[in-house]
Amino acid sequence: MKIEILKEIIKKKSSKEQFAVLTNLSNGNSEIFEFGKPLSKDFENYKNEIENYYNLKKNGTINGTQIFILNYIKPIEVIIVGAVHITQYLIDLIKNFNFVITIIDPREYFTTEKRFQNIKIINEWPNKALEKIQTNSNFALITLTHDPKIDDPALNHALKNKFFYIGALGSKKTHENRCKRLKEAGFNDKEINSIHGPIGIKLGGKSAPEIALSIVVQLVSETNKISLKSRN
């Protein structure tokens, strides 16, 4: 692989787009594939097969050829509302996975850089902050403030924009009240029941790192479910 390709992969990864890297195993040549862009002589004869693998996000050697394709999948975007103690542990665990994180919290004393290094933080109310982000079903929302005036607008936004995962922190009682408010806001039972609340899998712990772990497990599990669906 040429160093230019390596540098381009690193650059492209940060632009969050889907692409693939092709390698001709018989001569070692490799190049970056983007849908619709012309291929070089090494690969142009296999255009259809390459596009097929790309669309299925499948990695491997294309049958009967010496062409290897490795897909770089668009990362899932995770919006965390609330820059609280649990969030610090959550960030620590989540960074090993292919997620792009944004933290939203209007409370300045929580969102200091000292608490969250190298993480995108929007220090505004969720409805204002979410106006600036183009969201879709590739997004996940985790609300951690259990304060309705901060969490609710974000939950409304996530339900309307069909986030694939929505999880909300709070006791069963808090969640019941939350569901009532969402119902009053016009959401149906199916939409409201799609919210994971209380958030996280049953791990049996109450400390901040344990809650963070239970949230990450649930998020990863739900993310794997959708990536399996998109393959079938």
């Binding site: 160093i3 390596l6 690193i10 960074k95 090993n96 996975f97 292919n98 993310t223």
Partner: peptide, 17 residues
């Protein structure tokens, strides 16, 4: 799902540099 390949490629680049 894992982010490790990103870290690997960045490390490869820094070794080369």
């Amino acid at each position: 799902m894992s982010k490790s390949f990103e870290i690997i490629l960045e490390k490869a680049n820094s070794w080369i540099e």
